[in-house]
Amino acid sequence: MSAPLLTVWYNTRCPVCDAGISRQKRRLIEAVKSGHVEFRDINFEPEALSAFGASLEDIRRRLHATDSAGRLLVGADVAVAVWRLTPGEGWLASLFGNPVTLPLTRFAYDRFADLLYAWNRRKGHW
């Protein structure tokens, strides 16, 4: 089998992240079954993205993914890539991932991720 189109690394210990990824897995069930998309828990493989310089805490703070060409995607760029592959959500990728709105999308994602990361640390979701 060839490399997945997208391998998404996320933190299952974050209830918000886990719920969001669970939803996407259901929406992408055929792509997951065929191996085109993988969702992996970084807590089981904390060094998985160390070759990219991404630490466990980096991945707990923001989604990370690798594409089929071996490139690293981070944060909002992962969300846009997932939306592109998800049936019925391509419009989200077009809206939030276009060259005009992508900088704002990244800014908003990063602020939300910072707040969520702080909340998770306070609640002990590690």
Rank of each mutant, 00 (worst) to 15 (best):
L104M: 14
A51C: 14
A65E: 03
L104K: 08
N43F: 14
V82R: 00
T86L: 04
W126N: 12
R62H: 07
F107N: 04
R60V: 04
E38V: 12
G124F: 12
S50V: 15
H36S: 11
A108V: 07
L104C: 09
P99W: 10
F112W: 13
V80R: 01
F39A: 00
W91F: 11
I59W: 03
F112G: 03
N120G: 13
Y117M: 05
L85G: 08
R60P: 01
R111G: 11
H36T: 09
R121E: 15
N43E: 15
A51K: 14
P99A: 07
S50K: 15
D58W: 06
A69I: 07
S94G: 06
A79D: 15
H125V: 05
G124C: 07
A108G: 10
R121D: 13
N120P: 10
T101H: 13
T66A: 02
G90W: 10
E45A: 10
A69N: 12
A51W: 15
F52D: 00
A48Y: 07
F96P: 09
F52S: 01
E47S: 15
F107P: 02
N43K: 15
V82F: 07
L49Q: 00
L102T: 09
R40H: 12
A93G: 01
L95I: 12
I59P: 00
A113K: 05
R62Y: 07
P103L: 12
D77E: 05
H36I: 05
I42G: 01
V74D: 00
R60T: 03
I59F: 05
L63T: 01
H125M: 06
A65T: 08
I42A: 02
R111K: 14
R40C: 12
T101R: 10
A108R: 09
R84M: 11
T101K: 09
W119Y: 11
R60E: 04
H36R: 15
R62Q: 04
G97E: 00
A51T: 14
A51L: 13
L73W: 06
Y109F: 08
W91T: 04
G53P: 00
G70C: 09
S55I: 10
A54W: 14
R122V: 04
V80L: 06
S55K: 08
A81V: 03
F52C: 04
A81K: 02
G97H: 03
A118D: 12
N43V: 13
Y117E: 02
W126A: 11
P99V: 06
V100D: 02
E38T: 13
T66W: 04
S68P: 11
H64L: 03
A69L: 12
F52P: 01
N43R: 15
D58Y: 11
